[in-house]
Simulated scan of single mutants.
Amino acid sequence: MTGLLAFVESPVQLLNVLEWAHTRAPGAEAPATGAPAPEGSGTAGPAAGTPAGGAPGPETPVTGAPASPLTVVVLSPTDPMSRGQLRRMAQLARDEGVTVHWQEARGGRGALVRTLRRLAGPLRSAERVIIGDPFSRYVQLLLTLFGPRHLTVVDDGTATMEFAAQLGRGERLVRWHRKGSLGPRELVLAPVTTLARRRLAPARGRTVEVFTSLPVEAPEGVEVTENSYAWTRARFGPPRLTGGADLVGTSLVETGVVDADHYTRVVGELARTHGATRYFAHRRESTGKLHRIAVETGLQVVRPELPLELIARRGPVGRTIVSFPSTVVHTLPLALAGTGVRVAVCEVAPEWLRATASPRAQGFLSGVTGTAAREVDRLTACATPAVDRLEFG
C-alpha cells in the first residue's frame, strides 16, 4: 500500500483506521499478541513514551508525501479525555508500523493556516484519503481544498448511518442531533459544506468507500466494506468475565438530546435490575454528571483510556453489557464474538427527550436500536418519569 493518508479526530476513528488497514494486509487473522490489562483495572495503562495524562508532546511536522504505506494525521481535539485516548491509540498504531503525526490543529490563532500549509503536500500526493468524520468542519475544509482520487470513510459512531442516508438523498450534511435551521456559523460555512458533500460522493475519477460495522444503505456508486473488528480480536483477549454487569454511558445529555434527571434515574434502575457495579463513561460526559451518577447510583465510574471495544476485549468485563442506543450495540458483539458476553440495549423513551432535541432525534435513536445486531437483547423502558419497570422486548 502506498500513498495512504488518514485524518482522525477521535480514538474510535483511529481504531477503525487500524481495522481498515488490517483488512488490506496479508494474513489478516494474525495470532493474538496483546496481553490483557491487569485484572480489575478496567483500563489500559499509558502507552510507552506517552506523557502522563495524555499531555501533548512536541508537534510532529508533516513535510512531504507519506513516508510509509499508511500515515495517520491526528487533528488533535481540545478535550483532555479525547487527547489522552488518542495518545494511547497512537502508540498502538505505531506498534503496528503505522506512521503517526500529531497535529495541533486547534492550537490557537494561526493553527488552521499552519495545519493547511503542512498538509498541502501529503494531500496532493495521497492516492487514498481516509477520514473518520465527514461532518467535521475541519475535514470538510481539507476536502474542498484538495479533492482525493480515492476516499474511504470509517466509522466514528452511528453518524455513519446518517451520513450514508444524507449522501444518498443528496441532502446537506447535518449531524442527527442538530436542529435543522441554519445558524450564522452554518450560513458562513454553507459553501464549504456543499462542496465537501460533492467531494464525498463518487464521481468520474473518484471512488468512495464506507468501511463500517453498521447497517447502512449504500448510495449508488459507494462501496461498503464490512468492519468485523478482526484486528481487535486478533490482538487482544479473550477477556476474563466477571459475574455481574457493566453499563455503558452516553453523551446524549451533553448533546442536549436527553433530560439529565431521566437519564440518571434510568441508569440507577438498570444497575439494580442487572446487578451492575461499573459505569464506563463516554469520553464526552461531564464531570458533574458522572459525579451525580456515582453518588446517586453507587456505581463505580470508569473513564476508559482506550475505546470501549479494546477495553472490553482486554477485560475483565461483565457477562452482560447494557448500553443506550449507540455504536457499541453494533461493535461490541463483533469485538466480543465467541466470549459469551451478552450485550443489551435500552431504548430511549420519548419522555426523556429535552425540548432542545432535534425533531429527528427519536427516530434516529429508535433506528439505532432497531438495527442492532441479532445477538443484542432489546430492553423496553417504561415511558414514565419514574421508570418503574424494565422488561425484555
Rank of each mutant, 00 (worst) to 15 (best):
M81D: 15
S82P: 04
S82A: 15
R83I: 13
G84A: 15
G84W: 15
Q85I: 05
Q85S: 09
L86P: 08
L86D: 08
L86Q: 10
R88W: 03
R88M: 02
R88Q: 11
M89R: 10
Q91W: 02
L92P: 03
L92G: 02
L92K: 06
A93W: 04
A93I: 12
R94S: 03
D95V: 00
E96Q: 13
G97L: 00
G97I: 00
V98D: 02
V98S: 00
V100D: 00
H101I: 01
W102A: 07
Q103V: 10
E104F: 03
R106M: 07
G107Q: 09
G107V: 01
G108R: 06
G110N: 09
G110S: 08
A111C: 05
V113Q: 13
R114T: 06
L116I: 14
R117C: 01
L119E: 06
L119A: 04
P122A: 05
P122G: 05
R124V: 15
S125P: 03
S125H: 14
S125M: 04
A126M: 12
R128Q: 15
I131H: 04
G132L: 10
G132P: 12
D133Y: 08
P134L: 08
P134W: 07
S136Q: 11
Y138H: 10
Y138S: 13
V139M: 06
V139T: 14
V139I: 12
V139N: 02
Q140Y: 05
Q140L: 04
L141K: 00
L141Y: 01
L143K: 01
F146A: 07
G147P: 13
G147S: 15
P148F: 07
H150L: 02
H150A: 15
H150G: 11
H150M: 02
L151M: 08
V153M: 03
V154L: 04
V154S: 03
D155Q: 01
G157F: 03
G157Q: 04
A159N: 10
T160S: 12
E162A: 14
A165I: 01
Q166E: 11
L167T: 07
G168S: 11
G168A: 15
G168H: 12
R172T: 07
L173T: 07
L173H: 06
L173F: 06
L173Q: 05
V174D: 06
W176Y: 09
W176D: 06
W176I: 03
W176Q: 04
